[in-house]
Design a protein around this nucleic acid. Structure first.
Ligand code: ZN
Ligand code: ZN
Ligand code: ZN
Ligand code: ZN
Lengths: 127, 127
DNA sequence: GTCATTTTGACAATCGTTTTCGTTTTCGGC
DNA sequence: GCCGAAAACGAAAACGATTGTCAAAATGAC
């Protein structure tokens, strides 16, 4: 694995929440790296292809990435305020999704499930 | 409600699946309308703001819209092949999402849940 | 060191979407 | 029916995220 990809992976590891390519580019430049934006995009593409990082889309359509501790199937509880994310599992949801697909004759069923909220810290900050 | 917005809403009603702004623009022009792309975007913005249509993002980040029969909270089972969508409910998922948020001290909890698969027709078409 | 291969990054191009802004249409008052 | 204000339109420009291009730089045999 190349040095640049390592750098991007590490920048992601240092973040607790989901970050966009541009966020990571800014982070890396801020800490002195001479990396280019194109390379950040390429690294993220490779990392998500290999399943090393999770990707999801914001409401605005921007792709955001996260290096998750769990490498098995899971979902996220994401703070709208600070972006912090918690990995969560939902066996009931997995079964429900499968059942829903089957009931309507769909095959090769997958799903996207994300939970959003305001974390305790962010709630406190507002009050 | 203006005539243009009606036209967009109707175009959506005639589709069984999720459609992008550009799709709808093409549909309308194809049937002779002189509507502009800007107006399609504006109509969709208004329709989704008022909750008359559902929006979601494709993996590529494109916004797609659907005029759903149900006006209460629900999710979708979407065919990857033809885009056809079925409205589905999942009380268990609703409770799970709430519980997950609460367990981690998150407030103002919402969620996005979509199920994807290949519908029976599309499965048959391939074989 | 030399040559071939891979990686990189500045820049241009693409694509969906939004903004701008002048024109057209709608509509209430006359 | 006619007039002016307000709302709706649409073409074109602007935008922002992402991808493509291509020449320079790093890497790795030999
Ligand atoms: Zn927070
Ligand atoms: Zn799942
Ligand atoms: Zn289908
Ligand atoms: Zn729900």
């Amino acid at each position: 694995m190349s040095t640049r990809r390592e750098a991007v992976k590490q920048a992601l590891n240092e973040a607790s929440g989901f970050r966009s390519a541009q966020d990571l580019y800014a982070d890396l430049r801020a800490e002195g790296s001479k990396i280019g934006l194109t390379t950040v995009y390429r690294a993220l593409q490779a990392l998500s292809d290999s399943g090393e990082v999770d990707v999801l889309r914001t409401d605005e359509g921007e792709a955001v990435y996260r290096a998750c501790a769990s490498d098995s199937h899971h979902h996220h509880l994401v703070c709208r305020g600070c972006g912090r994310a918690v990995e969560v599992e939902g066996p009931a949801v997995e079964k429900w999704a499968e059942a829903v697909g089957a009931k309507h004759g769909f095959t090769d069923v997958t799903h996207t499930v994300e939970v959003f909220g305001t974390c305790a810290d962010c709630s406190a900050r507002v009050n």
